[in-house]
């Protein structure tokens, strides 16, 4: 019996690229943005828990070695110490992987930073499904874990433009923040739109008569690609980008919810407790009853493997998103 030879994709580096072919990118936007901000604001400091190179914090560390603090593989200390630094007037950005910031060190973010309302900025790498290394590193429920924390601002940026603008904006927020980090060669998409990041504001990137995709994070990039492709099917698709998950831009969400279009929420996160449920509760609590189509990761521990394979398998690829919208429209 012969086995047909087929090209198998392999699990790539820990931080696999989700960049589409031909996509423009910008290197290490977070690290460079923090470095630039630090030149203007002397109170900015950076900390990491043995993941400087993997969260682009190394760019800041190289530019400002006296303002960079390596805490070792000690996430409880990372967040406790960041809070202590904020207590004495500094503005810390603390980076690690999202899984460690949320699952392992929750109590420290909650009681040391959020309860006193300190300006502590957590930067979480590998949010959602952005690595093929399996559940130990895939923060598929980070937003679900954090949304219940009073006073925490949660930002899920789409691309390098979002990140570059979010870093100074988050430093301005008086209380604690959590940024879902995209690192390395990060897609550059939003400069083609009339777009400015504002904390707590959603942005209508394109309008459409038939469908609105309500998206956050890297899925906004997929939503924009899907909208182009759906136009070929004569489906007119709008995209509402919601980079701030909390506080949610309820006005923008209600406007979309009250329309007669198909509304699809699109997120790189578990279907439990993320953008989709935030939108659903916003609509229900405001008396807007309607159908929503959730595109999100399943409520499961996900498989290991090559990222493009996994995005396709779990519904995050542009192909799957297009198909899902067509199915919902019964086209």
């Amino acid at each position: 019996m012969s086995t047909p030879t087929r090209k198998r994709l392999t699990t790539s580096a820990m931080i696999a690229s989700f960049v589409d072919e031909g996509q423009r990118t910008t290197p290490a936007p977070f690290g460079h943005a923090l470095s630039r901000l630090a030149e203007e604001r002397p109170e900015i400091v950076g900390l990491t828990a043995d993941l400087g190179k993997y969260t682009d914090m190394h760019v800041f560390a190289q530019d400002h070695p006296d303002r960079f603090f390596q805490m070792g593989m000690s996430e409880q200390l990372l967040l406790g110490a960041a809070a202590g630094m904020a207590e004495v007037g500094l503005v810390p950005f603390a980076s690690t992987y999202s899984v460690f910031a949320t699952r392992r060190a929750y109590d420290f973010l909650c009681l040391d930073a959020a309860e006193p309302g300190l300006n502590v900025n957590i930067v979480g790498g590998l949010p959602g499904l952005t690595t093929g290394y399996g559940p130990s590193h895939q923060a598929t429920e980070d937003i679900a874990i954090l949304r219940g924390m009073p006073g925490l601002t949660i930002v899920d940026p789409c691309d390098s433009v979002d990140i570059e603008q979010a870093v100074p904006a988050l430093a301005e927020v008086a209380g604690p923040t959590y940024l879902r980090l995209l690192r390395g060669k990060v897609p550059t998409v939003l400069d083609e739109y009339d777009y400015t990041f504002e904390v707590g504001r959603a942005a209508e990137l394109r309008t459409g008569r038939d469908v609105t995709l309500v998206s956050s994070g890297l899925m906004t990039m997929r939503a924009l690609s899907a909208a182009e492709r759906l136009a070929e099917h004569r489906v007119d698709v709008g995209v509402l980008h919601v980079p701030t998950i909390k506080p949610l831009d309820t006005e923008a969400v209600l406007r979309v919810g009250r329309s007669d279009r198909l509304v699809v929420t699109v997120e790189n996160h578990s279907v439990v407790g993320g953008l989709g449920e935030a939108v659903a509760s916003c609509l229900a609590f405001n008396g807007v009853g309607r159908d929503l189509v959730p595109v999100a990761l399943p409520d499961e521990f996900l498989a290991a493997g090559a990222l493009p394979t996994l995005h396709d398998r779990y519904g995050l690829s542009t192909d799957r998103l297009v198909r899902r919208v067509l199915d919902a429209l019964e086209v």
């Binding site: 400091v45 006296d66 303002r67 603090f69 409880q76 200390l77 967040l79 406790g80 110490a81 960041a82 809070a83 202590g84 630094m85 904020a86 207590e87 004495v88 007037g89 500094l90 810390p92 109590d107 420290f108 009681l111 040391d112 309860e115 006193p116």
Partner: peptide, 27 residues
């Protein structure tokens, strides 16, 4: 009262951050 204690094992980590921060600021 400098911190809200009670959940144990927090004070020393916050103290590390304060000591680092104060030294960094030259206080």
């Amino acid at each position: 009262m400098e911190i809200s204690g009670g959940s144990l094992g927090h004070g020393l980590g916050v103290g590390v951050g304060m000591a680092l921060g104060l030294r960094h600021r030259g206080v």
